[in-house]
Nucleic acid binder design. Sequence first.
DNA 1: CTGTTAGCGCGTTCAC
DNA 2: GTGAACGCGCTAACAG
Lengths: 346, 346
Amino acid sequence: MPTLQDVAILAGVSTATVSRTLNKPELVEPVTRTKVAEAIKVSGYTRNEAARSLAMRSSRTIGLLTDNFASSYFAPIMDETVDILREYGYYTIVEATGNVANNIDPGKQRRAWQSLISRQVESIIVLSLLVDDAELENMLREFPNTVLIDRHVHEDSNRCITVDHYVGGQLAAKHLLDNGHRNIAMISGPENKPDANLRGKGFIDELLRQGCPIKENRIFQGDYTITSGTNAMQQILNGKDEVSAVFAQNDDMAAGVVNACYTAGIKVPEQMSVVGFDNSALATAVFPHLTTVSQPLKSMSHSAATLALNLSQRHQREGVLPNPQTHFMPALIERMSVMDIRPKQR
Amino acid sequence: MPTLQDVAILAGVSTATVSRTLNKPELVEPVTRTKVAEAIKVSGYTRNEAARSLAMRSSRTIGLLTDNFASSYFAPIMDETVDILREYGYYTIVEATGNVANNIDPGKQRRAWQSLISRQVESIIVLSLLVDDAELENMLREFPNTVLIDRHVHEDSNRCITVDHYVGGQLAAKHLLDNGHRNIAMISGPENKPDANLRGKGFIDELLRQGCPIKENRIFQGDYTITSGTNAMQQILNGKDEVSAVFAQNDDMAAGVVNACYTAGIKVPEQMSVVGFDNSALATAVFPHLTTVSQPLKSMSHSAATLALNLSQRHQREGVLPNPQTHFMPALIERMSVMDIRPKQR
DNA sequence: CTGTTAGCGCGTTCAC
DNA sequence: GTGAACGCGCTAACAG
């Protein structure tokens, strides 16, 4: 690997000049500029970011901490964030804790996080459902330049991107009610997850408010996995309870619900309506395409990136970007999995 | 951020000693060792990987280049590879080119790749369907320490992990034939992709070999997306051609096929059998669960990681690992989307 | 506009 | 077993 030094000699200038043509070309004579450019080309020089970071006391990189690549509902956020950050000349390094659903390993979480810090990231965006609250608190304390997406540990709105899951739950309830459903079941996400709890609470409250309280025995526990959705639905079906609609607190479980229905010979939406949550890739992969509650991932990514940038060293130099929106509202996406069962009027 | 220096002062020793206790603890007196450990703890020291890379002339990191996080069939490979590499004390830094299906941007590809190189990765694992062959050749030339997963540009088996797609196609054909299907259609992947072509060729050849050649007009062009599967299947259905089974060259398209069927009131597998390819997460999300051809992703990841390690600087020092298997065979996973239509025997 | 010089934080000889 | 000194590749003053 050729170094700045090599290029300098080749171009017959000093290393400082090469560095300048690379970083502040306007400060260097056009003639030497091309001379240097030439030397860079023929030598195949690539700058050493490690050395650069050291010298600048700034890595110009931000870290993204996620659970795992395979089951991330948030893959679109990752793509978007990386893109935005790159526009601002920032690197993103993404680390996965390797946690999968119920198999979480705090050791790996910490190592992944440590790895980001030792790479001198200027801030960290946490995009994880599986790092628990206590651990998150620790991370926040040890490394304050942290932006949380959809986690509520810290109340500083400068560090948290949030979505109103409660409203999301309400949206789901309203939609079902509007379509004439009265016998409604719900499949919850993991018990200890605030987002899941909020979705449930919004749903239940709205049902109650509209005079159609949900029955206790129509609430089933799931854990956001497809199979948990399938299992819950089987219970519902076996119960011989006359349910006409189900709200699954995420799309994976909703897909499981659809599976259970068809396996049992129940048609969706003709005999069973289902509403999901997240508007994940699955929603348009299964039949029928899922009516679901979507989060504005793109906007959220943008805010997260902006917040991370503002927290970084850039802050002190080029000034901060205007503070972006941090609280977002979900929206109901109407597709094919809910049927209007109101009596036809003529 | 505290530095080695800070720790040294705090512990009342030299920086060299701190460095040693960190990297070669056996060379330092137990007493001072604990003294240093203490100082590290109270100061909250984290080592600066940038400085370390510089001094060691080695980053101990390998790069993973992929298309994007959102639509990657290879997410499991990424998770697995990162895990393995970490076991060997190696960092993985993953970059996405941001390319999506038909929207590929060579500029972004190159930037993502450059970014890896400037971070001094010791080798690169390419896990991409969307970087084209010519570009791949360039990368290989400029940076030879590259491992290719499921791409065949370079014939060096030390650098290529391959899967036998041809055999995969055969497997799909055999399975359909074994279940009594004779009127079979196929939906191809992108035209210019060798993997897709091979899957198709294996399928067609096997059908021919068993005396049941596929009709020209039963081959439809897709592009690996769900909607392309749906569209192709609609054509098949509209054609009033008596097809009893469809082979989709990947699971996404197979999901699209199932969608089209149910939309048209055709039951899968009762009225239409379908076989997919990849054994992706989708395969067990849709109804019915897809019978599909799977690639041994875990083994492939292991090989890729090993190859990357052997190519890295580690090579010259600690010696290389035994060369792993590089060519893999797919397997048919039987689930619920194919029906046996052979006449019942008594 | 360009060259000289001095570190950034760490690993590594080489003396002691 | 430990410390002093040097250098990795680069940027950032400061002169000129």
